[in-house]
Amino acid sequence: MNAPTDPVLDIRNLTKKFGEFTALDNLSLALRRGQILGFIGPNGAGKTTTIKILVGAMRPTSGTATIAGADCVRDAWRIKRLVGYMPDTFGAYDNMRVREYLDFFGAAFGIPRGARAKRIDEVLETTGSGWMQDRYVEALSHGMKQRIGVARTLLHDPEMLILDEPANGLDPQARIEMRDLLLKLAGMGKTLIVTSHILPELSRICDVVAIITQGKLRAFGTLDQIMRDLRQKRTFEIQLCGPAQVEGAAAAVREALHQDEREGVKAHATESLVRFDTARSDTELAAILAALVGLKIDVSQFREIPKDLEDAFLSVTRREAPAA
């Protein structure tokens, strides 16, 4: 029904107020089919609020959100079929085995009994949790519960999966498994929205990342774009062929940079390299390289040092924090 390039998720000027408090402030973003959106922000940023509006559990104060053309307020019933939702709490039932648990939710979605049994096998297989089908849900470990939670969202084969903090509290191994699982789901053609309060946790597998703090969208785009936008200063290294030219190269770089950036240029004779921080644009950097080459300095590598995602995340969230 929709062309593949149409946005499957379209959020426009979404605002949610709890009394005086604005939990979500004029949020707009769009997502294409088959993409993974990392919805990232510190605790209390408004991620869960956004998600609850998307799945029709909350009403926005103003603004609209549509999923595959279905409005989250008016077409709440269609949204249920389109979306598989995993809340940030698991929702265990006592005395119920994993298979019975999935059977119940399958029945709640009106899947006929025969098809349901097959579907349960499939989702257990997909999430790699077939071996725990006879366990009691309340006795599962946190990592197992998260997988069953994902399996549950898959039961009615929704187009879009919305997972609230799926990697929260998982150990590194389980986190890697969760990442692989999410990639697998994206590979099956699902559109995913995944929230996290930790940027590096999931962002590497996301096609698009939205960073939100205090209800406002701070950055939106691919991870690379965001990193470039966020970062005031990037770190570069110039690797030379020998230690002899190190001082000359450092002097040339200092020449090309602004006054305030000259301090940061360090020459490391033992490693034959020059390291510096700068906010220059890519074209200006190209000019620096050309100048070095023009001085007959033998540059073997001119490279950017990738900065920690954490640093970038902190720099946005700190920058936007109110003075108070």
Binding site: Y93, M96, R99, D103, F104, A107, R113
Partner: peptide
Amino acid sequence: RRKAGIPFYLNPIMVKEFRTRRFGR
């Protein structure tokens, strides 16, 4: 014993209530 799936003619909520309560078993 492994339970059969919930049949279409029963309300899934009702079956779930029976299965989750120790007393309902």
